[in-house]
């Protein structure tokens, strides 16, 4: 067996773990900066080791399982939530040469596998036998399935234009124009729905700490809790990569600046998305649960369906079809 086949993914795992460590610090620093306070600055220079210290702390915490909990499910849930978060990274092409699986139905694979995490969250909330955890888990499941529909539909415009589900072909179709311009409506729906899929502010109701204690992971301690947190941030990595690939042209350079390597462009676009997530968190208040559900079904879903129609119609317009028929 080809050793690259195993070493590559393991290397990516460490890159992702490194990203998660830095992203948590970066998030706290950015929010601190926006709120005019220093943020974490005690552990290491510029607070750079803060998350490392947090992870070490979690590692040596006692693992408490409530006596009333359903033990096997309680233990299984964090793993079920984490595994798909890492598995989806297999289909994401980072650059022309740095890509793992060129699976023919890449985008479908991502969307299908990522929804398994809902089961892990529901499992954890239910198995805890805690009212807050159950409420958080039910809210989370309802929210994630509601926003998955617009998320899935908003991509159809791109598939219509490219005629393929392969993420590599989707990136290659964006050599001239990135899809954020012709598919702006799709991008808006996709970005809002992905915020909600990631359970991030303004859609962080499942973890609304001021109303639900902590949400579905109230009863979790130590490293089991860490795995819920980890899968959340691995999804930030995956979703920011997917947004870059689908709408920001992946590794394609803007303005023909091809002397700068593709990986630099990918990372820049990727970081822009990650920063926007933190920016939005620091700026927006949390939405109410009734607004949340109505927004998905009454606004995002019709807009996403309209975007499909619009793309199909614009393919017929002369002079514009080069944007929509690739």
């Amino acid at each position: 067996m080809n050793p690259v086949l195993v070493m590559g993914p393991i290397l990516l795992l460490f890159v992702v773990l490194g990203f998660v460590t830095m992203a948590i610090l970066f998030e706290r620093k950015v929010i601190g900066w926006i709120q005019m306070r220093p943020g974490p600055n005690r552990v290491g220079p510029w607070g750079i080791l803060q998350t490392v210290a947090d992870v070490l702390k979690l590692l040596i915490k006692e693992d408490i399982i409530p006596s009333k909990a359903d033990k096997p499910l309680f233990k299984l849930a964090p793993a079920i939530a984490f595994i798909p978060a890492f598995a989806v990274l297999a289909v994401i092409p980072f650059t022309e040469s740095l890509q793992f699986s060129q699976f023919a139905v890449g985008i479908l694979y991502y969307l299908a596998v990522s929804s398994i995490t809902i089961i892990g969250i529901l499992m954890g909330g239910w198995a805890s036998n805690n009212k807050y955890a159950l409420l958080g888990a039910m809210r989370s499941a309802a929210q994630m399935i509601s926003y998955e529909i617009p998320l899935v539909m908003s991509v159809v415009g791109i598939i219509l234009s490219v005629g393929s589900l392969n993420l590599v072909e989707i990136v290659e179709a964006q050599k001239q124009v990135w899809f954020i311009f012709p598919q702006f409506l799709g991008f808006a729906v996709f970005f809002i729905a992905s915020l909600s899929e990631l359970n991030r502010t303004p859609f962080d109701l499942p973890e609304a700490e001021s109303e639900l204690v902590a949400g579905y992971h109230v009863e979790y301690t130590g490293f089991r809790f860490a795995f819920f947190m980890l899968s959340e941030y691995v999804y930030v990595f995956a979703m920011a990569s997917l947004t870059t690939v689908l709408f920001l042209g992946g590794w394609n350079a803007p303005f023909g600046l091809t002397m700068i390597p593709g990986i630099v462009w990918f990372v820049l676009k990727f970081l822009l998305i990650v920063f926007s997530l933190f920016w939005i968190r620091a700026t927006m208040p949390r939405v109410r649960v009734d607004q949340l559900m109505e927004f998905a079904w009454k606004v995002l879903l019709p807009v996403a369906l309209f975007n499909i129609l619009l793309t199909a119609v614009l393919q017929e317009v002369p002079y514009l079809d080069f944007l929509y028929r690739l």
Partner: peptide, 27 residues
Amino acid sequence: NILYLFVFFVIGIALPLVALSLGKILR
């Protein structure tokens, strides 16, 4: 391409297994 998907799943299963069982010594 299919093998990669499989490898990613195996690593995804291995990390929680290893981390949680090694953690048992520490906690």
